[in-house]
Amino acid sequence: MNESVRPVSLVSVVMPARNAELTIATQLEALRRQTYPDLWELIVVENGSSDGTRALLRSWQQAMPQLRVVDAAEDCGVNVARNIGCRHAHGDVVLCCDADDMVAPGWMAGLVDVLRTSPAVGGSLERRLLNAQVALAARPPKEADALLDTFGFLPYPAGANCGFHKELWSHLGGFDESYRYGSDDVEFFWRAQLAGYRLAFSPHAVVHYRLRGETRAIARQLYRYGRSHPKLYRDFAGHGMPSSRPGDVARAWWRMLVHAPDLVGSADSRAAWTAQLALRVGRIVGSVRYRRCYL
């Protein structure tokens, strides 16, 4: 892709939504307050909600003319929803966000400014505003001054705060829909880099990121994340993704053993311990399922 300055005539924001009745209004209001001065559209992909999400979206369409709702109830999955949203997008560039977060006022402008000279971009995730201490103990805030780099291989933006030229999405054949929960964003942006596309970071594109608030929900999410990691390793080991190091794995399990008394401690310590256990158990299950050892 030519990385000279490219005009952007229309921005498409794609937001998957599933059972988001309690949070999506906050995100829609945040999108309505964007400082970006030019044309944009919002495509909410309704992904099989069983709560009042659909009715709420219908009411918002009256007040938000740039909002379109696309039905994707027959096949649930975040990458399924993203692909459907991208297929309905009319814009030169696509920005992705989630229905349970809150974009900062300069989010759209921050991503689009970088996309004028880069094929893909990620912004920063701010975790403190929307989350209680229990959630922050389980998933502590990280530095928000660069793309994520969890696996020691290639960086990547979170799917909750990213953007790309639609041309890139088309060239890659879209998001991999076999990644239904966990590593769905990692896979796409790794594949983009391996295809020769450059990723950039926008510090001005901030998303206030909402974590799961209860220990059981936190553990379920971390388990699913962990289960996806051996699949990543299966798909990218041949491109240089390193294996999990036995010493790191042993130290992680030893820390959990040493801190096992945290289970009868404070809610914060219980959530942090349970989250780590769920991640590691997920990796074991994923290693069996995908026949690749990544612990």
Rank of each mutant, 00 (worst) to 15 (best):
N2W: 03
E3I: 03
P7C: 10
V8F: 08
L10T: 00
V13A: 00
M15S: 02
R18H: 09
A20P: 07
A20D: 15
A30G: 03
L31W: 00
L31I: 13
P37A: 11
D38W: 10
L42M: 07
N47I: 12
A55E: 15
S59F: 01
D71G: 01
D75F: 08
V78K: 15
R82P: 01
H88R: 07
V93H: 03
V94R: 01
D101K: 12
M102W: 08
P119K: 01
E126I: 00
L130R: 07
A132R: 13
V134I: 15
A135R: 06
L136Q: 09
T150H: 15
F153M: 06
Y156N: 06
G163E: 04
E167R: 13
S170Q: 15
G173P: 06
D176G: 05
D176A: 15
Y179V: 07
R180Y: 14
F188I: 04
A192G: 10
A200V: 07
H204I: 02
Y209T: 06
R212M: 12
A219K: 05
L222R: 11
L222A: 04
Y225Q: 06
R227Q: 13
R227A: 12
R227W: 04
P230G: 11
H239F: 12
G240W: 06
A250N: 01
A250K: 08
L257W: 14
L263Q: 10
A271T: 11
T274Y: 00
A275G: 14
Q276A: 11
V281S: 10
V281E: 10
S287V: 11
R289S: 06
R292M: 05
